[in-house]
Simulated scan of single mutants.
Amino acid sequence: MNGEFSVRKGRHCVSALHAHLVFVTKYRAKVFNGAILERLEAILREVCVDFEVELTEFNGEEDHIHLLIEYPPKVQISKLINSLKGVSSRLLRKEYSAIHQYLWKGALWSPSYFAGSCKGASLEIIANYIERQNRPS
């Protein structure tokens, strides 16, 4: 993440909307390792492209992930999150059968999430916080 302030320009609006998202696994199960987190990041980036959202920063630990996104005003955060969690859960469960031992009735994610607006804090500070997560190998 660079310290440069970016503005998204559309036909009828100019915006700079950023959000910090945190998703936690169901029952804080320690599901993720380095390889799964790499695949998870790729999946989330694909979903973000479909929504015209930029995934600026990604990292995670064994039981949760952090995302820093930049999104257009037309995107409803709740719908984006529903898609991010749904697609990632379905694909990870399909590709990594070993994670089924950690899941309860097939649910990867807790139904709750954190979404915070980032204009009150420096984006660089939030990006640094996400980078410093204790990512498993």
Rank of each mutant, 00 (worst) to 15 (best):
M1E: 12
G3V: 10
G3T: 10
F5V: 12
F5R: 13
S6G: 00
S6Y: 13
R11C: 06
H12G: 08
H12E: 07
C13L: 00
V14S: 15
V14I: 15
S15F: 09
S15A: 14
S15G: 09
A16R: 15
L17G: 03
H18M: 08
H18C: 06
A19P: 09
A19N: 08
A19H: 11
H20I: 10
H20N: 04
V22L: 07
F23V: 03
F23G: 05
V24E: 05
V24I: 14
K26P: 02
K26T: 03
K26G: 02
K26N: 10
K26R: 13
Y27C: 12
A29R: 15
K30I: 00
F32M: 01
N33K: 07
N33V: 07
G34M: 05
A35P: 01
I36V: 14
L37Y: 09
E38A: 12
L40F: 03
E41A: 13
A42Y: 13
A42R: 15
A42N: 14
A42D: 15
I43V: 08
E46D: 15
E46W: 05
V47L: 02
V47M: 02
C48G: 07
F51G: 00
E52P: 00
E52T: 03
E54I: 01
E54S: 13
E54A: 08
E54F: 02
L55F: 05
T56N: 12
E57W: 01
F58E: 01
N59C: 10
G60M: 06
G60E: 03
E61H: 01
E62I: 10
E62R: 14
H64V: 03
H64W: 09
H64N: 05
I65Q: 07
H66L: 04
H66T: 06
L67W: 02
L68C: 10
I69T: 04
E70M: 13
Y71R: 05
Y71E: 00
Y71V: 05
P72I: 06
P72A: 03
K74M: 01
V75I: 11
V75Q: 07
Q76T: 14
I77E: 04
I77A: 06
I77R: 03
S78V: 05
K79L: 14
K79N: 14
L80F: 06
L80I: 07
I81M: 03
N82V: 00
S83E: 13
S83V: 04
L84V: 08
L84N: 02
G86W: 07
V87I: 14
S89W: 03
S89Q: 09
R90Y: 12
R90M: 07
L91E: 14
L91Y: 03
R93D: 01
E95C: 02
Y96W: 08
Y96S: 01
S97W: 13
A98Q: 14
A98E: 15
H100E: 15
H100Q: 12
H100A: 14
Q101L: 13
Q101Y: 04
Q101C: 03
Y102P: 01
Y102L: 11
L103P: 01
L103W: 07
W104E: 05
W104G: 00
W104D: 09
G106C: 10
A107Q: 14
L108Y: 06
W109Y: 09
W109L: 14
P111H: 08
S112L: 04
Y113G: 10
G116Y: 09
G116E: 02
C118K: 00
G120H: 04
A121D: 11
I126P: 01
Y129H: 12
R132W: 00
Q133N: 15
Q133M: 12
Q133P: 08
R135S: 12
P136C: 01
S137I: 06
S137H: 06
